[in-house]
């Protein structure tokens, strides 16, 4: 969510209390993090490489798994830019203008953040399914939304839609609109104001939001599982491929695919840490 301050002044424990309590607390924090986060993470790679590098490579290069990687990347490539654009527009609207229904709109935008992706999947099924609201119309026009790329993209859009706005909005609110208004008074066009004044101010938050959005888009499971139809090598994203391999009794393959996703997640985290240092 929010970031630690860049190098806050080093706090020392209150003097005169001995070092026992800090040491105990640090030990407890390290031990619990080891058990809760580090070991599970290490376990993924342990299982992925248990049979050696060659087996790992074979599992990753298996055509269906490769296709799943590609599909997952493709979905993220569509979803992230769309949601970045939406996040900027929505944040601008909510931060810079007052209008009736503003609170309701904010709540609506936040819904995907607080509901189970399963519900998102069910909603889309009831809307675009052959027996859903738009189903007959889609069938008449021969449009395939569900069980194909559009359905996967739409559900992922839904699930990841609030991420960018949630990061950008607080910043825009905190910064206020004085600079932008000054620029407008000096005769700058709307686009110029956005590019020269707003964007430089929000770019890190924007990038951070985009990273969170990508991580979520790449890992989406529940919602997509309902609308994908799990056609091997066609509509299986990487998280679904993990489940499929697991059920194929190919546990090493499942962990190999999982380690790929974990690597993506770790990269996103590194990017985030780097961003925070530059902020």
């Amino acid at each position: 969510m929010s970031s630690p301050l860049p190098l806050s002044p080093t706090h020392t424990a209150a003097p005169g209390q001995g070092r026992l309590i800090p040491r105990l607390l640090i030990a407890a924090a390290l031990l619990s993090s080891l058990l809760l986060v580090v070991i599970p993470l290490a376990y993924i790679f342990y299982r992925a490489f248990a049979a050696g590098w060659a087996a790992f490579a074979a599992n990753i290069l298996e055509p269906n798994t490769l296709h799943a990687v590609w599909l997952t990347v493709l979905v993220a490539l569509v979803v992230v830019p769309v949601n970045v654009a939406f996040g900027i527009a929505a944040a601008w609207l909510v931060a810079r203008f007052r209008f009736p229904g503003r609170g309701a709109l904010l709540t609506l935008i936040e819904i995907p953040f607080s509901i189970s992706p399963i519900i998102a999947g069910i909603c889309y099924l009831l809307l675009y399914g052959r027996q859903g609201l738009l189903g007959p119309w889609l069938a008449a026009h021969d449009l395939q939304i569900l069980f194909a790329l559009p359905g996967i993209v739409l559900v992922t859009l839904f699930v990841t839609s609030p991420f960018v706005m949630r990061e950008v909005l607080p910043l825009m609110q905190a910064q206020g609109s004085d600079q932008e208004e000054a620029a407008v008074t000096l005769g700058a066009s709307g686009w110029q104001v956005f590019r020269r004044v707003t964007l430089p101010n929000i770019r890190w938050a924007l990038l951070y939001g985009a990273i969170l959005c990508s991580a979520r888009a790449v890992g989406e499971f529940g919602g997509v599982s309902i609308v994908s139809g799990s056609i091997r090598g066609q509509t299986n994203t990487l998280p679904l491929q993990i489940e499929l391999l697991f059920n194929d009794l190919n546990i090493a393959g499942a962990f190999a695919a999982a380690s790929t996703l974990t690597l993506i997640a770790l990269l996103a985290l590194v990017a985030k840490v780097v961003l925070e240092r530059r902020r």
Partner: peptide, 13 residues
């Protein structure tokens, strides 16, 4: 940095 892993890690993993 490790704290954020559960957010970044896909839930299926």
């Amino acid at each position: 940095a490790l704290i954020d892993i559960p957010f970044a890690l896909p839930t299926a993993v």
